[in-house]
């Protein structure tokens, strides 16, 4: 497998979206040191993104939003636009 194809398939492999044959071929490519290093650091990058912690909404903001909602009227539902067909 050429390196440029290997690079193109990285995300699909990580997301488990490669079909069986390609996946097999991709795994064989991981025996190559360069590919393996690239794969490990790519995978680690994605893992780090998954680990970004969620932050809590500040309580003051939460109540500010509620207060705004309570004093804001709702809009009427949007009407579906019907296109006129020219005869």
């Amino acid at each position: 497998m050429e390196h440029k194809i290997f690079l193109r398939l990285l995300s699909d492999f990580i997301d488990d979206e490669l079909d069986f044959d390609l996946s097999d071929e991709f795994e064989r490519e991981l025996e190559d040191d360069l590919c393996c290093c690239f794969f490990n650091t790519f995978k680690k990058t994605v893992e780090l993104c998954h680990q970004i912690e969620m932050q809590e909404v500040p309580e003051i903001l939460h109540y500010r939003i509620i207060r705004t909602i309570e004093t804001t009227p709702q809009k009427k539902p949007a009407l579906k636009t019907v296109k006129r067909i020219k005869k």
């Binding site: 690079l7 360069l34 290093c37 690239f38 490990n40």
Partner: peptide
């Protein structure tokens, strides 16, 4: 990433994935 020969550039090949600092506990990272 790719060299003119179609190979992965060696400069990009350092494997830092197993470094003990490759964690989000590392504030710098």
């Amino acid at each position: 990433i790719i060299t003119t020969k179609g190979e992965i550039n060696r400069d990009f090949a350092d494997d830092w994935s197993k470094s003990p600092t490759a964690t989000l506990e590392n504030t710098e990272l």
